[in-house]
Design a protein around this nucleic acid. Structure first.
Length: 700
DNA sequence: GAGCACTGC
C-alpha cells in the first residue's frame, strides 16, 4: 500500500503534541488523519495512562474507521480498538483506541465531567461544526485548564479554511498542515449569475457529456424537488442524443428521503462505456462518497434549516453555500484521477459573497436542550450565558432557551436547574419530550408517552412513500393507517406503533402500511433505550410497560394528552373565533395553520379543536404547526399564569453585570442575528452582490 | 390544500 501522507509527518506531530496541550491539525481529504493519528499517538505511548478517544460526526464513520484501525493493528475489533455509537458499544477494558460519535462523548461527560478515562481526545472533522462539536470544544477547552497537571492532550482536525480560527480559540495553539492525496481539480466558473440553476446544470451536464471523455458527473442540487426536475430533463435530453453519437448514460437521483435500496445504487459500478449522472443533495458532500466521479457541477446552493428564537419558528431556506462547502464539493471530482468542477456562479461571487464557513448549527437551532445539558453539568464558576463558545449564540437565542426551560419546569425563576430538569437532561430527547415523559410517569401513561417520544424521534424516516407522485408508482396502495381518533397526530403515532407491536413487530405489516422498516425498528430501539434509562434513574416508580392502556383509550387518552400539554407548555395554540387559523400562545403570538400532513380534521360544523399543542412551527409556503395534539382549555390556564410571571432578567440570573441583564444585551444579540439568520438580509446581500457584479461587467 | 436538506444522543 502506498504510504499515507500523514505518516511522513509522524515525528513532527509527536513532537508538537508532546510540547502542547492542544494541537490543530489541518488535514485534507485522503491524508489518513482519521485512521493514522490515533495509531501514531498509540505507538508513542500516549495511551499508556488512558484511552485515546476519537470523535466522528457520523455513526457509519465511527464504525468503519474503527474497523479499519483494528485491522491495520492486527487486533480484534472491540478489544484494543473499539467504537461506541448509540445502541452499540463495542469496547472493553482492554480498549486503548476508541472511536465514538460526538453525541456519545457528550453523554459520557455527564457521568464523568472530566472525561478522566481519556489521555487524548481527538475531535475529528471539527469544521463541520455540529452543535455537539461546538459544545465539546467549549468543554474540552475548559478541561485543558483543569487537567493541566496531567498529560492530557487534545487534537482538533479541521478543513483548511477554518484551522486558524480554531487555533485562535485555543489560545493560539500550533497548527500543523498535512496534505491530502487528492488529484488536482480544475475549477471553472461561469461568467454570469444564473437565475435558474436547474437549467444551467442541465446545459452544463449535457455539454460535458458530449465533449468530455469518460467519467461520472456529480451534480449538487438543493432538494428532492429540483433533483427530480433535473433528472427528468436530463433523461429527455440524453434520450434525444442517443443513436451512437455519444456514449450511453444512466441518471440517478440521490437524496435522503430516497429509500435505502435506491440510495445504494450509486455504489454499484456502472455498465461499461456508460456515463453516470448523479444528481444529489449535500448528502454526497460528506455522508456518501461516490466513486468514479470526475466532473462536479455545483449549483452553489444548499437547503438549510434555521430557527428564529423571536418567533420559535423554523424555516427551511435555500441559501448560498460557504467556501468550505464549495471546496468540499469540488474535491469530490478528484478522488480517482484529475477532475473538473464547474461552478454555476462567477468567481467574484465565490470570493466576495460566499461566507468562509457555513453558519454553525449552534446559531441555527433552538438551544433549550443544550442549555439544560450545560446547566446539569454544574460546572463550577461557569455561567451558561458566558460559556466560551467558538461562535457564541445570540442572546435572543439563549433567552429563548431559558424561557422554554422555565415554562416546562426545567429551571426555576432564578434560572437554576430543578430536580425535574436534571432528569430531563439525562434523557436523549428534546426537553419538551423528556418533560412529557416525567408528567406521564406521574399520571400513569408513561408507556404510551415513551412510544410517542420514540416515534417523534424517528418521524421523518417513517413515511417515505408519502412523497409527491409516488402514489401512482406504487403497486398497491397501502392500507389505511389509524387516524388518531380526532385527537391529533401524537395519538396517531401511538396507535401506529401499538398496532405494529400487536403483530409482534412483523416486517410485512410495515410494508402493507407503507412504513419504512428501518424507521420503525429505530423507534423500537429508541423506545427500548428510553425504558432502560428511566428504569435505571427512577429505581421504583416507573411503569414503562403500561397496565392502563385500555382505560386510557376509553378516556380519550386524557391523561396522556395532559402530559403532552405539560411538556409542550411553550407550544400552545388557540383557534381563531371564526375560522380554522390558530394563534400561538406565548410571548410573541403568531398566526399559524394546521400543517396539511396532520390527521386533524374539522368536526361536523367544519371547525378544528379550540386548543392544541404542537411539536414544531415551520414556515414553508406559510407558517404551519406540525404534529398537533388537542388539549383542554382548563389544562392551559396554569401555564398562562406562569407565562405572566416570567421575568427574563431573573431567569438569566447573574448576567446583569454591566448592561442591565439580558434584555439590555438583547439588542446586540438581535443585530448579530440579522447578519447570520435573517433571510431578508441575506437576500438583499445576494441582490447587492449581483448588482455589483453586473456593474463590474458593464465597465469591461 | 401543501410538501423534509443533513446529522446525532
Amino acid at each position: 500500500m502506498e504510504k499515507l501522507p500523514i505518516l511522513q509527518f509522524e515525528e513532527k506531530i509527536v513532537e508538537t503534541v508532546k510540547k502542547n496541550a492542544v494541537t490543530v491539525l489541518i488535514g485534507e481529504t485522503g491524508s489518513g488523519k482519521s485512521t493514522q493519528l490515533s495509531q501514531i499517538l498509540f505507538r508513542h505511548g500516549f495511551a499508556d495512562s488512558g484511552t485515546i478517544c476519537v470523535t466522528q460526526p457520523r455513526r457509519v464513520a465511527a464504525v468503519s474507521v474503527a474497523r479499519r484501525v483494528a485491522q491495520e493493528m492486527g487486533v480484534r475489533l472491540g478489544e484494543e480498538v473499539g467504537y461506541a455509537i448509540r445502541f452499540e458499544d463495542r469496547t472493553s477494558t482492554k480498549t486503548r483506541i476508541k472511536y465514538l460519535t460526538d453525541g456519545v462523548l457528550l453523554r459520557e461527560s455527564l457521568s464523568d465531567p472530566e472525561l478522566s478515562s481519556y489521555s487524548v481526545i481527538i475531535l475529528d472533522e471539527a469544521h463541520e461544526r455540529s452543535l455537539n462539536m461546538d459544545i465539546l470544544m467549549g468543554l474540552v477547552k475548559r478541561l485543558v485548564g483543569i487537567r493541566s497537571s496531567s498529560n492530557f492532550r487534545v487534537l482538533i482536525t479541521s478543513a483548511t479554511l477554518e484551522g486558524e480560527k480554531v487555533s485562535a480559540f485555543f489560545d493560539g495553539c500550533p497548527v500543523l498542515n498535512v496534505p491530502g492525496k487528492l488529484f488536482p481539480v480544475e475549477v471553472i466558473y461561469t461568467d454570469d449569475v444564473n437565475k435558474n440553476f436547474v437549467e444551467a446544470a442541465l446545459k452544463k451536464a449535457i455539454d460535458i457529456h458530449v465533449k468530455e471523455p469518460e467519467g461520472d458527473i456529480l451534480i449538487f442540487m438543493t432538494g428532492q424537488e429540483d433533483i427530480e426536475r433535473l433528472v427528468q430533463k436530463l433523461e429527455d435530453r440524453v434520450r434525444s442524443l442517443e443513436e451512437g453519437s455519444v456514449m450511453d448514460a444512466v441518471i440517478y437521483p440521490l437524496h435522503g428521503s430516497l429509500p435505502p435500496e435506491l440510495q445504494v445504487r450509486v455504489f454499484s459500478p456502472p455498465p461499461k462505456n456508460c456515463r453516470r449522472f448523479i444528481v444529489a443533495t449535500n448528502i454526497a458532500e460528506t455522508s456518501l462518497t461516490v466513486d468514479g466521479v470526475v466532473y462536479v457541477i455545483d449549483s452553489g446552493y444548499v437547503k438549510q434549516r434555521q430557527y428564529n428564537p423571536q418567533t420559535g419558528m423554523y424555516s427551511l431556506d435555500v441559501v448560498q453555500i460557504s467556501r468550505v462547502q464549495a471546496n468540499q464539493r469540488a474535491g469530490r471530482a478528484g478522488r480517482t484521477r484529475p477532475g473538473k468542477c464547474y461552478r454555476l456562479y462567477p468567481s467574484v461571487v465565490y470570493n466576495d459573497d460566499f461566507m468562509e464557513a457555513a453558519v454553525p448549527e449552534i446559531q441555527r437551532t433552538s438551544l433549550a436542550g443544550s442549555v439544560l445539558y450545560l446547566k446539569s453539568l454544574d460546572l463550577p464558576g461557569i455561567d451558561i450565558l458566558k460559556f466560551d463558545f467558538l461562535d457564541p449564540p445570540s442572546y435572543a437565542s439563549l433567552g429563548d432557551a431559558l424561557r422554554q426551560l422555565y415554562l416546562i419546569d426545567g429551571i426555576d425563576e432564578n434560572g437554576a436547574i430543578t430536580s425535574v430538569g436534571r432528569i430531563m437532561a439525562e434523557l436523549p430527547l428534546e426537553p419538551s419530550l423528556s418533560r412529557t415523559l416525567i408528567a406521564a410517569n406521574e399520571n400513569g401513561t408513561l408507556s404510551q408517552a415513551l412510544t410517542i417520544a420514540a416515534m417523534l424521534s424517528a418521524e421523518t424516516s417513517l413515511l417515505p412513500s408519502f412523497a409527491k407522485g409516488s402514489e401512482k408508482k406504487r403497486k398497491h396502495t397501502p392500507l389505511k393507517l389509524p387516524d388518531g381518533g380526532g385527537l391529533g397526530d401524537h395519538i396517531q403515532l401511538l396507535q401506529i406503533f401499538e398496532s405494529w407491536s400487536e403483530t409482534k413487530y412483523d416486517i410485512e405489516w410495515c410494508k402493507e402500511y407503507g412504513l419504512q422498516i428501518r424507521g420503525m425498528s429505530f423507534v423500537k430501539d429508541v423506545r427500548g433505550q428510553l425504558c432502560q434509562l428511566l428504569q435505571k434513574m427512577a429505581k421504583c416508580s416507573t411503569d414503562v410497560h403500561g397496565s392502563h392502556k385500555s382505560r386510557e383509550k376509553k378516556m380519550g387518552y386524557r391523561n396522556l394528552r395532559k402530559a403532552l400539554c405539560v411538556g409542550y407548555a411553550n407550544q400552545l395554540a388557540e383557534r381563531m373565533m371564526r375560522h380554522n387559523g390558530y394563534r400561538t400562545l406565548g410571548l410573541k403570538s403568531q398566526l399559524v395553520q394546521v400543517h396539511p400532513s396532520s390527521v386533524l380534521q374539522p368536526d361536523e360544523d367544519g371547525m378544528l379543536p379550540n386548543y392544541v399543542v404542537y411539536h414544531e412551527l415551520i414556515t414553508t409556503s406559510s407558517p404551519f404547526m406540525r404534529n398537533i395534539c388537542t388539549v383542554d382549555m382548563q389544562w392551559i390556564s396554569p401555564i398562562l399564569k406562569k407565562l405572566e410571571k416570567l421575568d427574563i432578567n431573573k431567569l438569566s440570573g447573574g448576567f446583569t453585570d454591566s448592561e442591565g441583564g439580558i434584555e439590555g444585551k438583547g439588542q446586540e444579540g438581535l443585530k448579530k442575528e440579522a447578519t447570520v439568520e435573517d433571510p431578508a438580509v441575506r437576500d438583499s446581500k445576494i441582490n447587492a452582490a449581483r448588482e455589483r457584479f453586473l456593474a463590474r461587467k458593464g465597465k469591461k
